[in-house]
């Protein structure tokens, strides 16, 4: 059978699976129309935009628009470093938390407690970033901030959080995990919900303990989902959430050394939004780096285990 499949050509194989082709068409068409067509806009990255001439008519200007990111060595190094390091930190800890919570909730679904807990954990997803920044301020404020109140009750010296860059990687991590742990675990929960229960029964009969079951059944089932998620996220290694890095930090200058990312920098530089060329250039830059990362890491994963690779 396998040999037979190999022999039939792409076209005859496609003709054989007309049903599949039909089911793929709506999704394919939507992507073509709404993801591929707009890529024309990336041309603006290489053009000196002129409103009367339009996107296609404007003059080419080479890599002029890319200078926004590459002008000052100090700043470029800093914002790229921050973006990449935060991506690593948030993705690693975030994924661990999401998987952990999914497993814990899964173990608790026998009673209502787990369900209600998860429902509560979803709450923070709906709090807009502006409001998160207000809540963060309530905790970290100088005068009447709650953390400082606690510190002073225990006789410790108060800390000016908004003036001290070194604490911010941790603060931002906590905020990120807080906002995403419930929501991010949803996808892993659905993966767990699909596990065939007979696997557990078989393990039970073999006398496996709970930790063993998690280790040998649950985690392997999640492996491909985790791997796919990280691979997909790699494409955004140069992207950062402006809500987290711009609003929660209140764009405080003194914290830039540990909090400013590429997107936050661009937001500062192009606040009026009138420079269409530079905006496109930044988007393209981020995409190209992301693309390189995904293709190379995917290649590595593919060599180890084809099932966990993206393509």
């Amino acid at each position: 059978m396998g040999r037979q499949l190999k022999r039939d050509s792409l076209i005859s194989n496609t003709c054989k699976h007309k049903g599949l082709l039909m089911m793929a068409i709506p999704g394919f068409a939507m992507m073509l129309l709404f993801s591929y067509m707009p890529m024309v806009g990336l041309l603006a990255a290489f053009k000196e935009y002129d409103y009367t001439l339009g996107l296609l008519g404007s003059e080419w200007c080479g890599f002029e628009n890319f200078r926004l990111l590459l002008e000052s060595k100090d700043i470029t190094i800093r914002i790229v470093r921050n973006t990449v390091l935060y991506w690593c930190l948030l993705t690693t800890v975030g994924t661990i938390m999401n998987v952990g919570i999914a497993i814990l909730i899964y173990e608790c679904t026998a009673n209502k407690f787990g369900k209600y807990s998860h429902m509560i954990m979803i709450f923070p997803t709906f709090v807009s970033w502006i409001s998160v920044s207000y809540i963060a301020k309530a905790f970290l404020n100088d005068g009447n901030g709650m953390i400082n109140n606690i510190l002073s009750t225990f006789g410790m010296t108060e800390i000016s959080w908004y003036l001290t860059p070194k604490f911010w990687p941790i603060i931002l991590l906590v905020v990120h995990v807080w906002k995403n742990c419930g929501y991010g675990s949803v996808i892993y929960l659905s993966a767990l919900a699909g596990i065939d229960p007979s696997l557990f029964e078989a393990a039970e009969i073999d006398g496996a303990s709970k930790p063993q079951k998690i280790r040998f059944i649950t985690l392997p089932m999640l492996k491909s989902m985790v791997s796919i998620n990280i691979l997909l996220a790699l494409g955004g290694i140069m992207h950062s959430n402006t809500g987290l890095f711009y609003q929660v930090t209140r764009n405080t200058g003194i914290l830039y050394s540990t909090t400013q990312t590429i997107d936050a920098y661009v937001m500062n530089a192009l606040s009026s939004g009138s420079d269409l060329g530079s905006t496109a250039a930044v988007t393209l830059f981020q995409s190209v780096i992301g693309c390189i990362m995904v293709v190379s890491v995917n290649w590595l994963v593919r060599r180890k285990d084809e099932d966990n690779a993206l393509f």
Binding site: M37, P38, T279
Partner: peptide
Amino acid sequence: IFTTLFSGGMLGSYLI
């Protein structure tokens, strides 16, 4: 997969 890597940005989507 390609669509996760490249997007047209705001200008492109708006024009199209």
